[in-house]
Amino acid sequence: MNNRNLLPLAIALLMFPQIAQTLYSPALGDIGRVFKVSPEAAAQTLSVYFLAFAVGVVVWGRLCDRIGRRPVMLVGLAIYAVATVIALRVSSFNGLLLAQGLAAFGAAVGSVVTQTLLRDRFKGAELAQVFSLVGIALAASPAIGLFSGASLVEAFGYRGVLIALVLIAATLWLWSCYALPETRPQQTPHVCVWETLARMLRDLGIWRSALWIAAFNVALFSYYSLGPFIFQRLNLDATWFGYSGVILALGSGFGAWANRRLLQAGCAAMQLIRLAAVTGLLGGIGVWWLQDSGAFVLPMLLIVLAFGMAIPNILGLALVNYSDRLGTAGALLGLIYYLLIGAGMMLAGWSQALGETLIACSAVALLLTIRATKAIV
């Protein structure tokens, strides 16, 4: 399979974890009602998802270096489908959390293995361009997830969402079985995971990348976690939360498109990350200012625009010094940033303060750009 034919499948696999998360978000209110738990408890299902996702990233990333990209992808997707079927059968909230954790473990394969596939096939500026193109496609994920999730919950409750997720996972498994190539280099050096971890933990650039990724992701997903309950507090129909995904997708898509054009014009990645951090900070202030009105969705456009602009550049830069161990290094980087995301989502769920969360995340991202510039100088 040539690189052009690989991209549609790779984009679909990368979209899968994000669609799974956003499709699930509108179901949080129904989950709280069915299992009789508080909004804070229901919101923690996304925290569990990210923490289990972090474990999956390590396992699948390590295995894709050991046994290959293709078999690992097929096993991970199968585990996700089985775990989601289990979630349909549980009768307790703790059972749902356990099933959600197992599903997240499987879904992680779509992130780490697909990124490794792309790093196998593309290098340098070409890789940044590919991630920008992927970012444009990923911008559709919130619209697809939130709108579809809200419609499914309204018609069938949270179980409708789970059934849809099973069908998506099965479709991706069949597509991958038919079309996914094996891209692992034939001569793969033996890589010690502990030596790689020690090296990465001493690498300030890795910590900077992980904190950047975590900050922009917590800002984005705190809306999906807290949004349903904000709409309830404002007495707005739950379906409007789904419609908001369309608006946010426009912002994310514009951010990814602008990022690609600015890269083509010769802008440096660090400049674009800094611009994204400033944009996110302005959006966070706007959400905080309008938090008692449905208009708070409008400054969220700046948050998703910042996400679409920053993430492709961060991912393109993160592992340039680990080209001999991309699967393992990608897994360990994922472990670090998904643990940070999980912790951030727990704090966001506990605080139930969207505006303050967005301001804090964007401020951290902006501070890191200043520190990065000093380090380069």
Rank of each mutant, 00 (worst) to 15 (best):
M1K: 12
N2W: 14
N3M: 13
L7E: 03
P8C: 14
L28K: 01
I31S: 07
R33Y: 01
K36S: 11
V37T: 04
S38F: 08
S38R: 06
A41F: 10
S47N: 10
F50A: 13
L51C: 06
F53G: 11
V59I: 15
W60I: 15
R62Q: 15
G76N: 10
L77T: 02
A78W: 11
A81P: 03
V82R: 12
L96Q: 01
R121T: 14
Q129P: 09
L133S: 11
V134R: 02
V134Y: 06
L138E: 08
A143S: 10
A143K: 06
A150D: 02
E154D: 05
I168G: 03
T183W: 04
Q186W: 11
T188D: 06
P189F: 10
H190L: 08
V191S: 12
C192G: 15
M200G: 11
L201E: 01
L201A: 11
R208G: 08
S209G: 12
W212M: 13
A214D: 01
A215F: 03
F229R: 03
N235H: 14
D237G: 03
T239C: 02
W240H: 15
F241D: 00
I247V: 09
L248N: 02
G255M: 03
N259V: 05
L262Y: 04
L262T: 02
L262A: 08
G266C: 03
C267D: 03
A268R: 14
A269D: 07
A269V: 03
M270F: 06
I273L: 11
R274V: 06
A276M: 00
G280I: 02
G283L: 00
G286F: 08
V287E: 00
F296Q: 01
P299I: 05
L301N: 00
L305G: 02
P312A: 07
P312R: 09
A318N: 07
A318F: 07
S323P: 07
L332W: 14
L333W: 01
L340Y: 01
L340P: 01
I341N: 03
M345K: 12
M346D: 13
M346I: 12
S351F: 05
S351I: 07
E356H: 08
I359S: 04
A363V: 15
A365Y: 00
I370A: 12
A375W: 11
